[in-house]
Amino acid sequence: MILQAALLLAGLSATASATCCPPVRFSAVQFVTIVNSTFAKDALYSFTYDGINQRYVISGDLSDGFLTTTKVIYDYSKKTGFSIDTEARTCSTFRLQGKFKDQESVCVPSDAVTLGPFFYGYDVGRLPSTGYTYNSTTVNGEFQKVVATVSRKDCVPIVITTTTIGPGGNALTVLGYNDVVPGIRDFTVFDIPSYCSM
């Protein structure tokens, strides 16, 4: 499930220019729902994005919930992904396809249509946001309709809904971003254990 969510993030097409992009480094808790004709799954992940060093890491597991020893590191500078279980001390590597596009999975492209403004919450604690819709394609050529709601001030993602239409069937993916923190507090999340072979 981690791999599916991360591949979705990596598979969105890049844009030549953007309406807005979130911080180049940020961390968040990401709630993921994926529904297609054969299954419906939910998961909760820790997500750390490092656009400067062309990498991100997703930690979490569908069966164990948020507290887990499983994480997947996507390091485009090494062109390698690492699927790690720190408790079992196992690691598998896989080759990353394509190039890292700076924040391609979280930027709003310049041709997006504005749907907002919106507000989350109420009174003095409400969060001003803006909705956008745009079309995209996956690396496999599947058509995607994306609706993204982001914070109005700094374009931090709040909810991104993607409908994918392809020969393998249609799918709906919803990514909800919570507890977003700019920057990266702990860079050791990107450390590759010694038992991972390149």
Rank of each mutant, 00 (worst) to 15 (best):
T114R: 13
G65V: 04
V32I: 02
T90I: 06
G81K: 02
Q103S: 09
Q97H: 09
I73L: 00
G125L: 10
S129G: 07
A14S: 11
C107F: 02
V159G: 06
D102S: 15
F187T: 15
S197T: 15
A6D: 02
T70R: 15
V139L: 11
S46V: 15
G81C: 01
Y177D: 05
F82S: 09
N135M: 09
Y45A: 01
E104M: 13
S17P: 09
D75H: 10
S105T: 14
Q30C: 12
F47A: 05
F66W: 12
L44S: 06
T133W: 11
L172F: 08
G176M: 02
S77G: 11
K101Q: 14
V159H: 07
A40I: 14
F31A: 15
V180N: 02
Q4G: 10
A171M: 04
S17N: 05
T130D: 00
Y122R: 08
G176F: 07
S77C: 13
V32C: 04
S59W: 13
T69Y: 03
L3H: 06
F26L: 06
T163D: 06
G98S: 11
I58N: 05
Y132K: 07
Q97A: 13
P128Y: 08
F82T: 05
K41E: 12
S151P: 13
F94C: 05
D50S: 02
L44C: 04
L3R: 15
S151Y: 03
E142I: 02
V146E: 07
L12V: 12
V156A: 12
G141M: 00
K145A: 09
M1P: 11
S136A: 07
I158K: 07
C196T: 04
A148F: 03
P109H: 09
A16P: 07
K99F: 15
P117V: 00
G65A: 01
T149K: 06
T161L: 07
F66V: 13
D123R: 05
I2N: 01
Y177M: 01
A40G: 12
